[in-house]
């Protein structure tokens, strides 16, 4: 007989309801209760339930990257995951990267390079870039990496490939790459 834990349910179907299901999800350092309707995507949970509208819905199908957030250090499309499956996870959204009083280096660089136009893809681009820089630091290869067994090197082509999950219809790509390149260099200088 199945002995599973019910995370959330819309209708009882013979599975024992566990009392301690009141799990939480950590968003930008604050614990929040999981949504009642298991259908709620992490994206809708952020935007609708929590009012964290910095994370954008561009396609709702993992095809544009506007909804990119960082979960336990990994960037994902928040539209293609159920909030209820993230019990105990730590989520960082654009609001957690930097607010108007204290923008991060990436946010500054995006402004300085005019790496945005309409701004709708921008939070996703920034969240994605934040995680991407860590991935390169970890030595993870990409489709643009010539030698899979050597250290990942930082290049414009690497940035472009690794950022290709974030569409920008205004066409700010050239400036986005310039902004990320600047931050990568700045961070590298800072650690010397």
């Amino acid at each position: 007989m199945f002995k599973g834990t019910i995370i959330a349910k819309e209708a009882a179907k013979g599975f024992e309801e566990i009392q301690d299901m009141a799990g939480t999800i950590g968003i930008n350092g604050t614990a929040h209760s999981l949504p009642a309707d298991p259908r709620t995507s992490l994206l809708d949970f952020l935007r609708h339930d929590l009012g964290l509208t910095g994370t954008k819905k561009g396609c709702d199908h993992g095809q544009c990257g506007a909804c990119t957030v960082i979960v336990n250090g990994m960037r994902i499309n928040s539209c293609l995951t159920l909030a209820a499956m993230h019990e105990g996870d730590r989520v960082t959204t654009i609001e957690g990267i930097g607010g108007p009083d204290a923008p991060s280096d990436l946010q500054h660089a995006f402004m300085a390079h005019d790496a945005l136009q309409c701004g709708y893809c921008t939070p996703g681009q920034i969240c994605s870039a934040q995680a991407m820089l860590a991935e390169i630091a970890e030595g993870w290869p990409s489709d643009a990496t010539a030698d899979l067994t050597s250290e990942a090197t930082f290049s414009d082509e690497e940035i472009r490939e690794r950022m290709s999950g974030n569409l920008c219809r205004c066409g700010a790509y050239a400036n986005i790459v310039a902004a990320i390149r600047d931050v990568a260099r700045g961070r590298a200088d800072a650690t010397v």
Binding site: L52, T53, T55, K56, P103, M111, A112, L116, G119, P123
Partner: peptide, 21 residues
């Protein structure tokens, strides 16, 4: 001049149509 709405956009605080509480 850097765009004056840039800060709102890079911090996700610029509100688009569906985002008004």
């Amino acid at each position: 001049l850097p765009r004056i709405d840039g800060l709102a956009k890079v911090t996700g605080t610029a509100r688009y149509a569906a985002e008004y509480p």
